[in-house]
Design a protein around this nucleic acid. Structure first.
Lengths: 248, 248
DNA sequence: CTAATAGTGTCTTTAAGACAGTATCAA
DNA sequence: TTGATACTGTCTTAAAGACACTATTAG
């Protein structure tokens, strides 16, 4: 406890007795609430560049315009915000396993023509190989981050926020591993890092960083892709938010 | 643009023509929206330890219990979420200048007895000297983070989230400078860092870190506090989110 | 003079950067 | 055997850690 002037127990018990009565008669529409949505930036590395999933809107507002996948929280089905995000991810890609992470919440009077609205933005990172032979929902497509068409609402800005967060975290975490299948070569992993950062990394330094930190484990299996077969590694992490002691 | 299969312009123009009609008849209460609130963890360093502001609730639910300052977004007065947060800060402390930063949004069906609710959490860092001779709103008090009483709703968890973020950012940013007045000695600054981190820092390393990064500037003014007068420094930053190349 | 606080010198350690070198293997 | 890709050795550099040292000033 902090100090001696906390609310007297007696008053508190009285208050609780009438709280039941208060809640019984409470209507959640006593005041105006903003529209609450969840939007997703679903990233994957395709054809050597950072792509994200966009969807052509079927309904008003912004009908027929490209937008980020997302939608309203379903108060009956979604027990929390992340559940809404994962449900949207599943509806659009059929995938349930992916790293998903909250970026930030943007709320203001101007972003949606229907009125004051608030969106909690998540990004998801998915392994491109998990997408093969799995059809996207109709109206959805992958688009290179650098070649995005005009997006509805403030979705271009939201995509930028998510990309900025991804880039930043790529500097000091193991997050990009979640963009690869369970077995990968260090060259593949390095390429993912370089694609996101938009700069090349010294090979020795990169491999030393990964192995010294112990975030990868040799599997003894090999992959023949180029001229020489390469060792396959697996992540040792349960959670990709591992942080390296320094940034690249 | 991404690919050639973007929505045809013709359809888009058609859609926009009817969008006005859609919005004219749109009612934001076509579906149920969660309750949307903003909560604040207002930090300051008082008596050598990290404190935060808590308020005794005057209304149901959780009447007479301690809670974080916060409240509903006012769709008429607040142009965006940060405005709501700053308004709450001003209402509770009288202060308008402070570093304020979004932490994260927590939304689920269980956290508020009134139903599915969603809160966007901010933390504010304020200079303790700015508080002197400025009365708090009634029912509010400063409480050491380590001696918090039971808080209403999930506010103890929210306070923990904010503290964790503050501690984390203290490792690699200049954020704690916002807990001091414009002129301060390096020893004072170091003490702030040590209080938040809960560990002592080597003096030479600390001073070198600050001066080498150029985040502080000698003012030529001195302060007599202990046995020997100490140089007063000022921040060179417009924005305290400056990041050092490595963590402490 | 003494004690306490402010502030410095300098060696070590850690992990990244640079870059040249060796290893393996398909064609 | 050539050339491309995988992988290593090792020197340099940047910045933190350790810790002993000097400087200043009130009492």
């Amino acid at each position: 406890m902090c100090g001696l002037d906390s609310p007297p127990n007696f008053n508190r018990i009285l208050a609780m007795a009438t709280e039941r009565e208060y809640l019984r008669t409470y209507s959640s529409r006593h005041f105006e609430a903003p529209l609450a949505t969840v939007d997703l930036v679903i990233f994957s590395i395709l054809k050597g560049s950072l792509h994200l999933l966009i969807i052509e809107r079927e309904n008003f507002p912004a009908k027929r315009q490209w937008a980020l996948p997302g939608g309203f929280v379903d108060l009956r089905r979604d027990k929390d915000l992340e559940t809404t995000a994962r449900r949207k991810l599943r509806e659009k890609t059929g995938l349930t396993l992916a790293h998903i992470e909250q970026v930030q919440t943007v709320g203001n009077a101007a972003r949606d023509p229907r009125g004051w609205s608030l969106t909690t933005l998540y990004f998801a990172l998915i392994d491109a190989t998990a997408l093969e032979h799995r059809p996207l929902v109709s109206g959805a497509k992958w688009c290179a981050f650098n070649e995005l068409p005009t997006l509805a609402f403030d979705h271009a800005m939201l995509a930028g926020l998510a990309a900025k967060r991804l880039l930043n975290k790529t500097r000091y975490t193991a997050l990009p591993m979640s963009l690869l299948p369970t077995l990968f070569t260090l060259t593949e992993l390095q390429t993912i890092y370089e694609t996101i950062l938009g700069q090349s990394i010294d090979k020795k330094a990169f491999r030393r960083r990964m192995t010294d930190a112990g975030v990868v484990r040799e599997t003894g299996e090999f992959k023949v892709a180029g001229k020489r077969q390469a060792q396959l590694y697996a992540s040792t992490l349960s959670d990709y938010s591992f942080e390296f002691p320094r940034s690249v």
